[in-house]
Design a protein around this nucleic acid. Structure first.
Lengths: 349, 349
DNA sequence: ATGAAAGCGCTAACAG
DNA sequence: CTGTTAGCGCTTTCAT
């Protein structure tokens, strides 16, 4: 590893000059031609700054920690992480990911991250819900991903849940469905309440009455299928908006058991959460994809802004499907979700 | 952040003494009672060592880099990473994961990791095959995971592919299958050749003739289903060993189209690679699970051993399904795979 | 415009 | 047994 000292000796200047030049802080301070010689030497000698030494001095590591709950149970964690990684990489940061599934272990990991002087943290929950942020993180720059702080102290990046419900329901209405059910989640998560509200609002906006018998909130367990079957037999809905793909599967199964086909005898729009079902039955399921990558990307940008290094550049975010929220590092951001058309909606496209 | 200096001042000793004590290098070198006072003070003041400063001095960061190819396309990357993470956490190391899908980008990431002085690298490919290790890694301690170095210069941790083929085929034979097909992979990966060999050897050991018409290597694309259907119609095998769950799906579909049921009319053992199918049809599919977590765990241990910090403690590896390979940091290791019984094998269990 | 010097927090060689 | 000293590679005043 070449050091600044070696460059300084080679060029015949002092380390300070080298430092100045190599950090682009020579502005009329170092004679251009000598600056050039420094740069050339650095290039030639393959100089790589020693990040450790720099960090020790500057109290800034350009490393951020990512604490991800349920990373083991969902295949989407990787996408969020990838989004964050890409953003951070562009901004000259490094990401250290730790699994937050084990409350005990995570405290240890957080301490380790702090020993290495991370500049801030990303905290994600994999499905939008209210979380208790570990106390040990509170004094650091922190951005939540797909989660909301119980006490609303931290910025977060989440899917626009209301809009998911609204768009999905509207899509069904536009396809001609007149009797639309919502198969929801019994746990009171933000994702559930937001989507349910969007569902109702869409009904209202299209002059359709909300009938609570058409809303069926279930846990993802044995009784769910029966509940969906009962709903179907009693109400005969022609359209289903499903909280996630696990719920969509119940509809699919209900249909199959009655000799019916999704996409012909009924329409389904589901949010793709667990991937399993979505991939297997994707041709038959109109899906709303959660923008995991984008959430990670956006959250990382937020975090870096909060760390105070650089702002967020809207132009550099080609993947956003909707305009960015205002560049305010403190207010929560909603991320728009895309509806992916498949063949499951009657009269689709 | 409390520093050693502060502790030293409080206790009234020098920094060196504090350093000695806090690193447990006081052995008859520091008077016990004063050592105790140092420890107490450290505890009281919530001392956390500054890893950066230490690393700058010792030239050892206790950080390792994980380069994972195809992290985006498989849900199992997370498990390998988790295994590595857990092992490293036990050993006092931190893991920085980067995506190796983009050859260009990965070089940049590697440089970044080097700037931060990582002690070594893990390199994984997600499906056992021969890889070209980036030149930039070669001068560092390196362990491959689920991959083999083309030039065999580096230790690797891989599934025991031969044994997968052997065990799967044996299981089918024991279930009474007399006409066993192998649906393999057309790409010449280690996983493919090893499993095919295991398949043939198992046949031979049970006095069954290998018939090449029963081996059908396909790509995972449109023509594969037809090939499997043709194989079935021509050969009428009663057992299938499938390279992965994508291949198993072709058998499942072939059966379904003929009104047949896996587990009754034929037996299937498949290796679970992509998860999608395996989760959806798990009741009908006897599965061989690749020990992703274990590979990560074991590889990380290897790497740390190679870095020269600590050896590997066999007793601390409860998850191994087979005896550990000898504790030699240079020779490749094979990891045993477990066959998970489901209902798909006729006469099973 | 450039260099000397101090210091980030820690470790390690060497005195005493 | 304990303290002094030097220095890891870099940034940052402060002189010159």
């Amino acid at each position: 590893m070449t050091t600044m000292k070696q460059i300084a000796q080679r060029v015949g200047v002092s380390v300070s000059t080298v430092s100045l030049v190599l950090n682009d802080r020579d502005g009329g301070r170092v004679k251009p031609h000598i600056a050039q010689r420094v740069r050339d030497a650095a290039e030639e000698m393959g100089y790589q700054p020693n990040a450790l030494a720099r960090s020790l001095r500057t109290n800034r590591t350009h490393i951020v920690g990512f604490i991800s709950v349920e990373v083991a149970t969902t295949p989407y964690a990787g996408r969020i992480i990838q989004g964050a990684q890409d953003a951070l990489s562009e901004l000259g940061y490094l990401l250290i990911t730790v699994n937050g599934d084990d409350d005990k272990a995570v405290e240890g990991e957080i301490r380790a991250l702090k020993r290495y002087g991370v500049d801030g943290f990303l905290y994600s929950a994999m499905s939008n819900r209210v979380v208790d942020v570990p106390e040990s993180l509170c004094s650091f720059p922190l951005v939540l991903v797909d989660a909301t702080d119980a006490e609303n102290r931290f910025p977060s990046v989440e899917p626009d849940e209301f809009r998911i419900g609204y768009d999905a329901t509207t899509r069904l209405i536009e396809a001609g469905c007149g009797h639309i059910a919502y198969i929801g989640c019994l746990q009171p998560m933000i994702a559930q309440t937001g989507r349910a509200e969007g569902y109702r609002q869409a009904l209202a906006d299209h002059g359709m009455r909300f009938d609570e018998r058409l809303q069926c909130d279930v846990l993802n367990n044995g009784t769910a299928l029966r509940a969906v079957e009962e709903l179907y037999d009693a109400q005969r809905p022609d359209g289903f908006f499903c909280f996630n793909d696990a719920r969509a599967w119940y509809v699919y199964e209900t249909a199959a058991r009655r000799g019916l086909t999704v996409g012909r005898d009924m329409s389904v729009v589901g949010v793709d959460n667990h991937r399993v079902f979505a991939e297997t039955f994707s041709p038959q399921l109109t899906t709303i994809e959660l923008p995991h990558y984008e959430m990670g990307y956006w959250a990382a940008n937020r975090l870096v802004a909060a760390i105070g290094d650089r702002g967020v550049d809207e132009a550099q975010w080609p993947r956003m499907t909707a305009p960015l929220p205002p560049l305010d590092a403190t207010s929560p951001a909603k991320v728009h979700c895309t509806l992916i058309e498949k063949e499951s909606v009657r009269g689709g496209r």
